[in-house]
Structures are given as C-alpha cells and as structure tokens.
Design a binder for these strands. Sequence first.
RNA 1: GCUGAUGUGGCUCAAUGGCAGAGCAGCUCACUCGUAAUGAGCAGGUUGUCGGUUCGAUUCCGAUCAUCAGCUCCA
Length: 649
Amino acid sequence: MINITLKGGTVKEFDSGITPYEVAKSIGAGLAKAVCAATVNGKEADLRTPLTEDCALELLTFDDDYGKWTFRHTASHILAQAVKRLYPNVKLAIGPAIDNGFYYDFDTDVMFTPEMLEKIEGEMKKIVKEDIALERFTMSREEAIKYFTEKNEPYKVELVEELPEGEEISFYSQGDFTDLCAGAHLMSTAPVKAFKLLSATGAYWRGDSNRKMLQRIYGTAFPKASQLEEHLAALEEAKKRDHNKLGRELELFTTSDLIGQGLPIMLPKGARMIQLLQRFVEDEEQKRGWLLTKTPFMAKSDLYKVSGHWDHYQDGMFVLGDEEKDDEVFALRPMTCPFQYQAYLNRARSYRDLPLRYNETSTLFRNEASGEMHGLIRVRQFTISEGHLMCTPEQLEDEFKGCLELAIYMLKTLGLYEDVSYRFSQWDPDDREKYIGTDEQWDEAQGIMGKILDHLEIPYKIGIGEAAFYGPKLDIQIKNVHGKEDTLITIQVDQMLAEKFGMEYVDKDGTKKHPYIIHRTSIGCYERTLALLIEKYAGAFPLWLAPVQVKLLPIADRHFDYANEVKAKLEAVGMRVELDDRNEKIGYKIREARMQRVPYMLVMGDNEVEEGTLSVRSRKDGDLGAKSVEQFIADALVEINTKANGLDK
RNA sequence: GCUGAUGUGGCUCAAUGGCAGAGCAGCUCACUCGUAAUGAGCAGGUUGUCGGUUCGAUUCCGAUCAUCAGCUCCA
C-alpha cells in the first residue's frame, strides 16, 4: 500500500501500482471524465503512470496548462489518424500542442485544400465518436527504427535515430494508428468533442529552411462546443483590431505597389502620431541625460567592414554600387551603432566623460526577405529611438538599469507594460559563423548581463541563438493580434565593437581602456510601436496620442459661426480639432466621428450657442451633458498632460 | 527566400470567353435637423502589370508586382 497526498492535503491509501487515472476514478466519475494529465511530486506525468511509492498527486484537467497541452496533443494524434485513414501515403512528421491549439506536420504530394480539411474534420469526428482507447507501450531504439522503416515513415526514423542508444522509446496507439510520443495523452479519443482545423500551410522540417517544406495543419480543440465557439469568436474579434486593416481604415498609413514592399506611407494622421511619440521620447531622453546626434543614412563599405556588418549582415543591407566595378561602394545603414561611435571618436575621452549617452531618432534600412514584410510591424525602412551609451565597467549595471527604467517608463505610459515579456537573447556557440568575438568574450558579456538581469529581478526566458552578432540582448517582447511575438524594445551589452573601432578612454590611473557600450531602444521603432498601439487600443487612442482629439458637431448651419469660435479656442491651446460642417443630421455626424474613434464629440445647437456651452460626448462614456468651453478645455488639458491611457480605471 | 491563397471604382463585395454591377464613401440639389446612417440625382473602372491563346480575355495560360496566412529570418 502507498499513501498519496491529493490536492488540498488529503492523504489516501492505495494499492501500489495504481495509476493517476484510477485514482481519479476512485474520487468520482466526473473527475475521471475531465482529468487530462497529472503531476506526481510536481512532475508532469501521464495518467497511465503506475504509482509505486508515497507521493503527492495532482490531477490536471483542461483548466490546467499541462492538462490543456495533453488534451490538444491528443487532438493532434486524432488529426494524424484521420489524415492517415484518408490519405495513407502521407508521411508523418511531428504534431505538438501549442498556445491555443495544436498542429501536425505531414509530408504529402498533394496540398491540403479547405475541402480536404473539412473531410479530415469529418473523419476526426468519427474517431472521437468511436471512443478509441489510447494505449502506451515501449520499444527499444532498434525496434523502433525497424518499426518505422517498415511503415515507411522516414521522419519518425530520423527522430528515433537522434535519441540516445539504449533509450526506451514510448509509443501511443489508438486503434489503427500508432505514433512515437513522449508526453502525456488522454485515455481515449472521446473527450475531444469540440475542435476545428484552422489552416493548412507550409513549414520546414525541423524548422530548417534548407530542408524539405512539409504541410502543416493547424487546429484547436476544447472539451465543450461553447468554448470552441467562444475561442473562434475571440479570434474574429482580434482580427478586427489588426493594425494592418484598422490602420488603413483609420487612414494612418497606406502602401503603394509602385513604392514597394515593406515601405509604408504614413498618412497625415499616422505621421502625426509618430511625431507625438517622437517628441515624447526625445524630450524624455533629454531629461535623462541623453545627447542627441544626427548621423548619415549611409556610409562607405569601409565602415561596415570595421564593424563586422559587411561580413555578418550584408544580406540584410541595401548596398549601393558594386565592389568589383566601382571605386566607392556605399550601403544604407541597417543600424546606427558604427555611426554614433564616430561621434565618440571625435576626440580623446576621459573617464570623466563617461557615461556618455547618445540618442538618435534614427531611420534604418534593412533588406528583409520578401516574405517577411507585415504591415507596420516588419518593414524595410523604419525609424527607431536608438541610443548608444559608453561607460566604465563600474557604471555598467546602473546604466543598464537606467536604460531599462526608461523603457519601462515608456511602456507604462503607452499602456503596453502588462503585455510584454523579457527574453535574454544569447548566442549559439554551435553557430559560430553568425557571431564575432571569442568564447571568452561571449561568456564574459553574457555573464555580466545575466548577473545584472538577476540582480534587477527581471523575469526573463532565455533565447539561444537570438543574440546580435556582436553581443547578448535583453529583448522586450510583445505579441500582436495574431499571437505572433516580436521584439519591441532591446537593450544590449557590447564589449566587442569598442575594440574594433579603437574606442578608448583614459582612466584615473592614466591607462587607456575600452568602454562598455550599451545599445538600446527606449520605445522601439515607431512603426512597430504604432502598430501595437493600434491593436492595443483598437484605434481608440489615448487623448494625448489621438490624431484628431475633438470633433465639433454643429446641429445646423446657423451654428457654424459658434463652432468656428470654439475651434479657434481649442486650437489656441494646441488641441487637434476637426469641424464637421456638412449638412448632415447630428446622428450621422456622431456615427462617423465614432467610427473614426475620435475621443470627444462636441455637439452644439441653439442651447449651447445661447449659454456658451458645449454638449460633450465621449467616445467611451457617451453623452456627458453640457460643459462650458473653458471647463472642457481645462479637463481635456489635464487628460492630455497626464498622458492618461484610460487603462488604470 | 519557401508553401498556399488573393488581386474588379476610395472602401466592402457581385458577375461573365461576347457592352463590368450593387451598397457605402464622393459630388449636386432639396431638407436646417439634438446624440450611431434624410431623400433624390450625378459622376466614378484599360478588372494589379506585362505577355500568350482566341474572331473576341476582366474571365483561360504564363511571367511579374503587390497583399494576406504560415514557415524561415528579424527591431
């Protein structure tokens, strides 16, 4: 007999060898139905794991992360089984659960069409209805290779071959379908009641663009139909916030076939927003001791040869000229670093000059691969609040902290702080060609940065191979409306480029030393930040950022004079105002102003003209009643000056 | 760059191997109106671009450009 401690601390006695599933059954039929996986002494486990010692057991349902993972992983098996039943020649690759769903990669000659996905869904429904039990068994590595070779599953063979010699390999079978698999699975196909296949697309085998492109089917699954419907509705809602659609509808930006890919045109409203952001950033940086530079958009190839960009980043650059033919070859700048270093090199530096903080609103050009461009999030020309900070080793931590505090201040002001995560981006020692510097230099830079991050208690995850070619980064990541993650802000520690460029300072003892350099953005690139703001606020921007803050809506044309007076008063205090003086009914004007997400609509008719007031309607709270013009201005200025984002309430 | 889909007035979308159509937006006129769409009329298109097949192509074929989703890559 063994003692099992259940959730809540109750201890129950069971026969040794009992499984988590049987424990769940002993507690109740409802739990047995809902249970997806378990943890044993905190370790994730399958429901079939025999328990032979005293332990703490937690039974996980779909409401738990690992339960969800197990549920959806089982859904991916059902997908694979259905595909195999309908198209036996298709080869299986891998099929994990992911955020909000699952996928399975197949190698197939025919592309999956929407009609085929429907057919596959139908077959999956049958499999669920058949209530097929999933059974776990193991094989030796050799047996597994033989098994998959006989079944003509080359991708599975490759996966098994990578496992260490002598490893017991676990399999799960469900009726006519067997898959190699390590994680937990449901007991049967029956609970996977509500699922949907969302798309079919290409994906490289092993995520390697040099290898074969397979066909990936994405899907999602829930225990209940209502949950699935809710999720699909949420996906639809999210699409409405898509900056690429909304930003065009709101006339913030557009694109032109003649200008080209990844080169958006900022329309007056979008350009105004970027101007507001830029002024805010530059003013804040000035307050924090950053000195503005303005450096060229291009340079001779010589500069990039020193920095290492020529060898490590040339594919990403727009090169003007041909080294074979031309005396001078230029390239548009993909980064600002080497340019600002030339400012540092302007004269000899002393430790008394440090820390030296340079910032620049810097336009960069990167020749992204044609399939990478996406709205304002991924473009070929972008403008970034870029800074480089030269300091002594002793100053490094405080300065790093200062950069982080600046970034956090920006995020909080914009209302994005809650939406970001941190990634400590490190190099990949197995991919040396991507990087400059020695193992020792990387160990040192990453060691220092790790220490700083730990000391500042930044909750980061590590990203191997995500470092810049010259050093590790703290990337502040954010997800767009489609769930795709991008870097918004980055702070990097670099101890290699100073040496390459001969950047030095004279220390107290009279010796020359290379400064540490921090590369940082404070708000990221303006285009991308704007994109995320559009999605965050669904176009209903905080008052201080709204391209049009107030729309004046006179009821009839005899009120136009008064409206123009009010407009002049608002503009006199710097507010952005539009007057709707068309011959339209008030309901129509309000409708249009609301669709443009204008924060305040000021209705004025006979009453207001007579009393010298405004009937204030807010985008958020509707009709607020009458206010004097002076009162409205005073209230609005408070809201603008505090940069209220409306998220605290 | 790769896989797939898409491209028709400013926007949303029809249609067809034989004169390209609607709604909204725009313009004109009437209405002078109180918190999410007043009515009538007018105008707007070389169907992304280039080439091919055809008596005839917007439709079929090819190339190219752009857009979207995903992969890879990245701020």
